[in-house]
């Protein structure tokens, strides 16, 4: 499990670094939001879930998709708008979904996935399924009405859902303290009579531990919890963001807490993996990524007939 979380984080970091390279080459179109620095959240949360559990993600969702088991080749093809992509090239970066894997989708609307995760949890209850839904959203989304309405309904009905707030400190360029009257977001849980937990979002094992507790509680019918994971995006909000809203020193402090070297150190110290084994993980990921880029670049564009298909179910 600990090695797998490491591999997940390395995959996410490598995937997004490849996107940066492709962007510099002018191959990528559209809005891309990077989660570099936040990999421990995706890896830790998804490691606490079992088959059948589902997530809703957000506009910064590449990491969540990979951690929930998405294939890098289909993701890369989607980002390049190809017919072989997860959404046949119709969704792009902000709408990657794989319902079979329990990823109910990234989302372009801040806070848009929170009611959907709540609804999925309700659906599991209605259908008598033992699954849990997890809403992944940022600190920005915590000020949307959809957050408050969802937490209230989920708490009222004791729905099997866990609300994971990935506090990366900024809603686009606005610092949390300038956006939220109560910057200690887990205190919001008090208002809905549910547990509120704050944890280090730069530590994958800690993330997995607090998530697993909340997930098992929800699965046992005891209702939702709010988990706030303190993290940081190392990159700007988007490619080309001049990042005028924070200091280099602050970013450097957070980079010193990079979740990937931290997990590597842990694996080596405890003897769970050797240098050779970890190097092999990096090599494997690099190989798969290279294949993914080749696959995506060699894939065809969507057929023109795809413009009008998939609007309605038959």
């Amino acid at each position: 499990m600990d090695c797998r979380m490491y591999e997940t984080m390395v995959s996410i970091r490598s995937f997004e670094m490849m996107l940066q390279e492709l962007s510099r080459k002018g191959v990528l179109r559209g809005s891309i939001h990077f989660c570099i620095g936040q990999e421990a959240v995706a890896a830790g949360v998804c490691a606490a879930l079992t088959a059948g559990d589902c997530i809703t993600s957000n506009h910064r969702g590449h990491g969540h998709a990979i951690a929930k088991g998405a294939r890098m080749d289909f993701m890369m093809a989607e980002l390049l708008g190809k017919a072989t992509g997860y959404c046949k090239g119709k969704g792009g970066s902000m709408h990657i979904a794989d319902l079979d894997l329990g990823n109910l989708g990234a989302n372009g609307i801040v806070g848009g996935g929170i009611p959907i995760a709540t609804g999925a949890a309700l659906g599991f209850l209605q259908l008598g399924l033992p699954h849990v839904a997890v809403a992944l959203f940022g600190d920005g989304a915590a000020n949307q009405g959809s957050f408050h309405e969802s937490l209230n309904l989920a708490a009222l009905w004791k729905l099997p859902v866990v609300f994971i707030c990935e506090n990366n400190q900024f809603g686009m360029t606005t610092r949390l303290a300038e956006a939220s009257a109560q910057p200690d977001l887990c205190k919001r849980a008090v208002a809905y009579n549910i547990p509120g937990v704050k944890a280090d979002g730069m530590d994958a094992r800690e993330v997995r531990r607090v998530t697993a507790e909340a997930v098992e509680r929800a699965r046992a019918g005891k209702g939702p919890a709010l988990v706030v994971l303190e993290t940081y995006r190392f990159e700007g909000h988007y490619i080309g963001d001049p990042v005028v809203y924070r200091t280099k020193e602050e970013t450097a402090d957070w980079k010193a807490r990079d979740p990937i070297p931290r997990q590597r150190e842990y694996l080596l110290k405890t003897g769970l993996a050797t240098e050779t084994e970890l190097d092999r993980i990096h090599a494997d990921v690099a190989g798969r990524l290279e294949e993914a880029v080749l696959f995506a670049r060699n894939s065809p564009d969507p057929d023109p007939s795809e413009l009008v298909s998939d609007v309605y179910s038959e």
């Binding site: 589902c54 809703t56 319902l99 109910l104 929170i114 009611p115 959907i116 995760a117 709540t118 609804g119 999925a120 949890a121 309700l122 659906g123 599991f124 209605q126 259908l127 399924l129 699954h131 839904a133 959809s146 309405e149 969802s150 309904l153």
Partner: peptide, 11 residues
């Protein structure tokens, strides 16, 4: 949202 989400998982 409860309706959309529950419909997505088969209700």
């Amino acid at each position: 949202g409860a309706a959309v989400g529950s419909a997505l998982v088969g209700a």
